[in-house]
């Protein structure tokens, strides 16, 4: 069974329809990349998966988003536990105005995951380790998260997301504001995380999609044009539109 199964999803901002009949299945431990021009709906789609669009009052969703066989838009869905299960990393690194330690500990604390203080410490260290950041910060855990470099901040945000033990990680252009070396670290991390997590990543960088993803989905004007294995997508896509996009025939 697919980890995530979306069928006939329509999304509206007020009267404007942003997504049209999206259907896609994402199996467990797969990295799927969403590509497409700006405003094509790929980020909007990503945010329907953990109901981050709930914060927009005029947003409306039709259709089904099943995660582990449960529709996340059922009225009795606990949004907080959904978001705990489906973690998210944002385009701009957004650490909290707290220490490095407290940034990672926050999610654990609010969800009451830890048993005691020692357990909390262990979980924070493990999350930082999994995000390939522990070595760089273990001597300054109590200093401000804003003292980290951009790439480190983004890995801190990944650690923060990992700390609440999600099963799915959504990444919204996680490396778009980073330099090539920091980008490479994030990409290596994604490949590493794939062993444990199901990952959906929105990216404008097609080489990035090609490097890290198992499958690639191409969005255009709110429609899912094509989804195929990444290797096929970049050598021989089925759709003319996809080909035109990945070869830069339109902006």
């Amino acid at each position: 069974m697919s980890k995530i199964s979306v069928s006939d999803l329509n999304f509206f901002y007020g009267k404007a329809q942003a997504l049209h009949d999206i259907s896609i299945d994402i199996p467990e431990r797969e990295v799927v990349a969403f590509i497409g021009p700006s405003g094509c709906g790929k980020s909007t789609f990503l945010r329907t998966l953990n109901r981050m669009n709930d914060t927009i009052p005029i947003a409306r969703v039709e259709g089904k988003v099943m995660i582990d066989g449960k529709d996340v838009y059922e009225p009795n869905t606990d949004v907080a536990s959904l978001r705990r299960k489906v973690g998210m990393v944002f385009q701009k690194s957004n650490p909290f105005p707290k220490s490095i330690f407290e940034n990672v500990a926050y999610g654990i604390r609010i969800n009451g995951i830890h048993k005691n203080r020692a357990d909390l410490y262990e979980r924070v260290e493990k999350a930082l380790n999994d995000a390939a950041l522990l070595g760089e910060v273990k001597d300054r855990m109590n200093t401000s998260a804003f003292g980290l470099s951009g790439g480190q901040q983004q890995r801190l945000c990944i650690a923060r997301a990992l700390a609440v033990q999600p099963e799915v990680i959504l990444m919204d252009e996680p490396a778009s504001a980073l330099d090539p070396i920091a980008t490479q670290k994030i990409e290596e991390l994604i490949v590493e995380l794939k062993k444990q997590y199901t990952i959906a990543i929105v990216t404008h960088n097609m080489q990035q999609a090609a490097r890290v993803s198992d499958r690639t989905a191409f969005f255009m004007l709110g429609k899912l044009v094509e989804v195929n294995p990444t290797q096929k997508m970049f050598t021989n896509p089925d759709e003319k539109l996809t080909e035109d996009y990945i070869t830069g025939r339109f902006g």
Binding site: M88, Q91, N94, F96
Partner: peptide, 24 residues
């Protein structure tokens, strides 16, 4: 983005306001 970061961890709105927004 800071609020969204906290919301995405499963924090309810009032905790986001109390723990993140007001301190910031």
């Amino acid at each position: 983005s800071m609020r969204e970061g906290a919301l995405a961890l499963g924090a309810p709105q009032w905790r986001v306001t109390k723990d993140i927004v007001i301190p910031a």
